[in-house]
Amino acid sequence: MIPRCTVGELIDEGIRTTRHCECCGDFADVDLQRIAAVKGRDFSLADRLPFCTNGDCLGMIRFQIHRGLRAQWLLTPEGAARFQAHSDWLFTYRQVQSRRAAQRAARRTPQT
């Protein structure tokens, strides 16, 4: 069970929050003050899965909170299912692109 985790609560409790994209490996701390200024202190990061903005990456970003040596993803079972569905789609998309590239390369090379 994840806590409510509004931006205001995370700031008040001094909880370190990071974002991570498994597709490209992008990892960074989250600027909670900036989010609070734009979205408000009652904005919750739970189940937020924005698309990665790192170049042409097709992954989704997950948020994680760190309390001492413990880390916890800010996902409910429904959010985890959405993330898994996107990961499955991304795997299939990459497989299709790989096969298409191999077929194009085979068509370009002359047959002997």
Rank of each mutant, 00 (worst) to 15 (best):
E13N: 10
L10V: 08
P3G: 15
F43S: 09
C5P: 00
G79Y: 01
F83H: 11
I11E: 11
R104K: 04
C24T: 01
P110G: 08
Q97K: 12
L75N: 07
I11H: 05
P77Q: 02
Q64P: 00
T18K: 02
T92E: 09
Q95N: 02
I11N: 04
R34M: 04
H86E: 08
G79C: 09
T112I: 15
R94C: 06
I35P: 05
Q95M: 03
Q64M: 15
E78R: 13
D31R: 15
H20S: 08
T109E: 12
I2S: 15
D26R: 15
D47M: 07
W73K: 01
E9Q: 15
V7T: 12
R48K: 12
G55F: 07
V7D: 08
L58T: 02
I15T: 06
F91K: 13
P3W: 08
F27T: 13
C21Y: 02
L49M: 10
T6H: 14
A85T: 09
D12P: 05
A80R: 04
P110Y: 05
R41K: 12
R108L: 11
D26Q: 05
Y93I: 00
T76S: 10
C5E: 09
D47T: 04
Q64C: 13
A36S: 14
R107K: 12
F63P: 00
M1G: 11
T109R: 15
L90K: 06
I15D: 00
R108M: 04
C24H: 04
D42K: 12
N54S: 11
D47S: 05
V38N: 11
K39R: 14
L69G: 13
G55W: 15
I2C: 12
E78S: 02
R48E: 15
H86Y: 07
L49R: 10
P77T: 02
A106F: 01
W73R: 02
A106E: 08
Q97W: 02
T53I: 11
S44L: 07
T6V: 06
T112C: 09
L75Q: 13
P3Q: 10
A80I: 08
H66S: 11
R94V: 04
A85V: 03
K39I: 07
A81V: 00
V38E: 12
R108S: 05
L45H: 08
R67C: 00
V7G: 09
Q95F: 03
H66T: 13
T112R: 14
G68I: 07
M1E: 14
C23T: 15
A28G: 04
H20C: 11
W89T: 00
C23A: 08
R41C: 03
R16W: 01
S98F: 01
W73L: 14
G79M: 07
I61E: 13
L90V: 01
